[in-house]
Design a protein around this nucleic acid. Structure first.
Lengths: 215, 215
DNA sequence: CATACATATCACCGGCTGGTGACAAATAGG
DNA sequence: CCTATTTGTCACCAGCCGGTGATATGTATG
């Protein structure tokens, strides 16, 4: 069965600029989440949105502007999600605080394909276009940490920023690798039980680094 | 100044199949290391090798075979480098052993653009073509760890495989991020001093996880 | 109604990609 | 010397990409 030329049965788009812009933004997110940053381009987004790519140029001044517009939305979503996490916890030590942050971030990242793709994108192809996205994200993250810290201070002698960076790096890499291949360094990361193991391990690392008792 | 059609001054390749194959393999490595996996394709490699892409099809049966041929070479190099590392150390505890392994792997990865690109590639675009490369690498790594372990055993109650996976994940992610943007989570990773800080941090995490005294 | 504008679509361009068949030239074997 | 094989080059294909100018069509305004 060869594919035969087929008349375009789709009706023309309703002439509603606002709706079109929204559908383009939605399509951009879908493409990034489901097809990866490698497929993230004008043509792919236009196909998803079922509109002409010309409209992307007109309404967003190209990919650049589209990414920027999406970026704002995503940053606000991130801060909201982070707030959600921190609302339910009252840690009583710096280590306990970091444990909450790290595991919360892990779960957040796990469910957010877009953020995963953004991180992978930045690792693979650093570009000025992305640096702003990344900056916005880490900005939201750091203000969140600062706001939540309260009067808790890290143990003296500990290089807390570096330790936290390494822990977050571990979490991010495990999520990305799990998403890509379902495993890392011989350890399967697929089932909920696997993820509990990961969480326990990260908690252990936090406890070890900050001298807290296991909770 | 428009670029003008220019006669090809290059002499034809010497008719030496072995040399041609070597130069193609070399070109493949260069493209991957310097231009990234996104540019890793038949045309780019042929350009680098200054030969016709047809030869890649003839001698390696396409990209697939070329990757495979390179993969073998890289795996043997990895095992050699790992041996190099372990030769000079006689750790007296499991924690000390892991510290050596982790920091050795960090430095190894730091100087190996090809391995960095391979890892990023796998994170971004999982494909059966790459899974074999990855499998070969983790195989070499695990046999190395097994061979080097000796009679040292992890502390009871510790989930050593998971802890090691998390630590390696942290190291890999920090290297990739440093290579891509020179920073991670607000921490600069550029100078040698920065890298010493990273090493110290990873060592601290190992000590904390395995209850060893800081060395 | 007629005109002007906003919206959407189409057709095309140059450039790059992977892939292939035809051809030229050097070499080896009889 | 003539031939067959190997080695290398070239020309071309279809397909996708980003980007743009021209065009149709709906909608609001005078």
């Amino acid at each position: 069965m060869k594919k035969v030329k087929q008349k375009d049965l789709s009706l023309p788009r309703p002439r509603d600029r606002g709706a079109t812009e929204r559908s383009i933004l939605e399509a951009a997110k879908l493409v990034l989440a489901e097809e990866g940053f490698q497929s993230f381009g004008i043509n792919a987004i236009a196909r998803r949105a079922q509109c002409d790519k010309q409209l992307i140029y007109r309404y967003f001044a190209g990919l650049e502007g589209l990414v920027e517009a999406s970026g704002i939305e995503l940053a606000s979503k991130l801060t909201h999600d982070l707030h959600q996490i921190s609302a339910a916890h009252r840690p009583d030590s710096y280590g306990a605080l970091m444990k909450v942050l790290l595991l919360g971030l892990l779960d957040l990242l796990r469910g957010d394909k877009i953020m995963q793709q953004t991180i992978a994108w930045e690792l693979a192809a650093p570009s000025p276009l992305l640096s702003r996205l990344i900056a916005a994200r880490s900005q939201a993250l750091s203000t969140w940490m600062h706001h939540m810290r309260g009067d808790l201070t890290p143990p003296p002698g500990a290089d807390a920023p570096a330790i936290n960076a390494a822990l977050i790096a571990a979490a991010q890499h495990l999520v990305l690798s799990a998403s890509a291949s379902g495993a890392f360094a011989g350890m399967m990361i697929k089932t909920e039980a696997d993820w509990r193991r990961v969480r326990d391990t990260l908690a252990t690392l936090v406890d070890g680094a900050y001298g807290t008792r296991p909770s």
